[in-house]
Computed example of a mutant assay.
Amino acid sequence: MQKIYLFNPDHDLALAQGGDHYVAPPHARQLQHDLAALPLWYADAGSLLVVPDVEAKSWVNDMQSRVMAILPQEIKNHATATFFPWGWNRVERKRLIRLGAQPESLPAERVLDHLRQLSHRRTTILIHHELEQRLEKKFSPVPVEVDTLQAVLDFASRHPGCYVKTPWSGSGKGVYHVVDATDPYFRNWCNGALKRQGSLLCETGLDKTADFALEFYCNGSDVDFVGYSVFSTDFHSQYNHGLVETTSNLSKLIKKQCPAIDDIKACLVEILGTIIDPGYLGHVGIDMILYRDDRGDIKLDPCVEMNLRTTMGVVSSAVGMMMGKRGQFSIAHSSTGFQDGEVANRLYLTPIFSDTKYCAYIDFNTE
């Protein structure tokens, strides 16, 4: 079975739009163009990788990796392959069919509609309740879904420093860290989000000490754990960079503060196996945080986000196992481009050309 990987980072934006006529904004198209080679670091041996142009194709093939690059117009030569985009949505299905893929080899529209509903942030509430019931343990405060501005304002007044999130968004987008609930900008943001997506998720602000994720791979209801991701985020919970390490070392790091992580991991395998659509083939990431409670004890929020797609954590985890040494994974942006030169202890994961505005790299020997 031939596998073909694609990088479509506008996946979350397409889910938020909801239909199959979405057009990505310029920055998302640039990101997709520049980081198209990223899947080569986690793709299975013998797979194909779709890249936008001949330059990128030559770069991938010159890497002498286990993956060979093809151009979008070559997809028609592999019409019955199994496709692995960064994330599945109606827009990506339509695009692949337009490029020559056989509809029968792609997930059906009903499957994609179900996956979109599962990608709604209310699924984190379900996972919270399932974990507490199965493990007979209380975790962090559970998010609350609301559908009016007044309900948001009431929550924010009771929980200073809370987070308000849109149902569909990714990588920290669509997240508002509330500092002043009376700010007109915040109210306008909420009204716009409610009009577009119908509801908002409100979460209590916690004294966070660490961000990490458990990465899984789903083949329908068969779910396998594939690695850990330890990363940092900014004030608005947007991804900054990730720690590159072996799975064994990341496990030790997490278990120091969360000894029960293996029980939680096993429980998540069971939960995901019951809720993921049988037609789904791809990654699922469960973002978690460690935080201090009022007594100063370290506690766990076991499901801050569920990403029903590939994540940057999958990339950093795969590279950590491949390289076997510690580093820091980053995505950089420059409106003026990058110098294509060597940087000490740096590995570029994507090519740099004259028109490149985004690049992915790892700095090794990072403490």
Results as ranks from 00 to 15, higher is better:
Ala344Pro: 04
Ile254Gln: 05
Gly320Ser: 12
Thr204Glu: 13
Tyr361Arg: 07
Gly100Leu: 02
Glu74Tyr: 10
Glu367Ile: 12
Phe329Gly: 08
Ile97Ser: 00
Thr124Glu: 06
Arg309His: 02
Glu92Tyr: 13
Ile254His: 04
Asp183Ser: 13
Ser199Val: 02
Lys94Phe: 01
Cys258His: 01
Lys138Asn: 13
Thr247Ser: 14
Tyr22Asp: 09
Val51Ser: 01
Asn89Met: 06
Val315Asn: 11
Ala36Trp: 08
Asp53Met: 03
Thr82Lys: 06
Ile276Met: 11
Asp20Arg: 12
Asp53His: 12
Val51Lys: 01
Leu243Gln: 02
Tyr228Gly: 07
Ser221Gln: 14
Tyr163Ile: 06
Pro143Arg: 09
Gln2Asp: 08
Asn188Cys: 00
Asp277His: 14
Asp222Asn: 00
Phe364Tyr: 11
Pro25Trp: 09
Ser229Asp: 15
Ile271Arg: 01
Ser119Gln: 10
Leu31Asp: 00
Ile125Ala: 06
Leu153His: 12
Arg121Pro: 09
Val51Met: 01
Arg93Asp: 05
Asp20Thr: 03
Val152Asn: 03
Glu245Ser: 13
Asp34Gly: 08
Pro72Ser: 09
Val142Pro: 05
Arg110Pro: 00
Ile289Tyr: 06
Ala56Gln: 15
Ala344Cys: 02
Gly100Phe: 11
Glu145Trp: 05
Asp44Pro: 02
Thr356Leu: 14
Gln17Val: 02
Ile271Pro: 06
Asn249Trp: 05
Met322Gln: 09
Lys299Val: 01
Asp154His: 05
Ser199Ala: 09
Ser119Glu: 07
Trp189Leu: 12
Arg116Asp: 10
Lys357Leu: 01
Gly161Arg: 05
Arg122Glu: 15
Ala108Val: 03
Phe155Glu: 15
Leu308Ala: 11
Leu308Glu: 06
Leu15Cys: 00
Arg187Gln: 15
Lys252Cys: 13
Val142Ile: 15
Pro184Ile: 05
Asp222Phe: 01
Ile289Asp: 04
Gly205Val: 03
Leu99Tyr: 13
Leu38Asn: 13
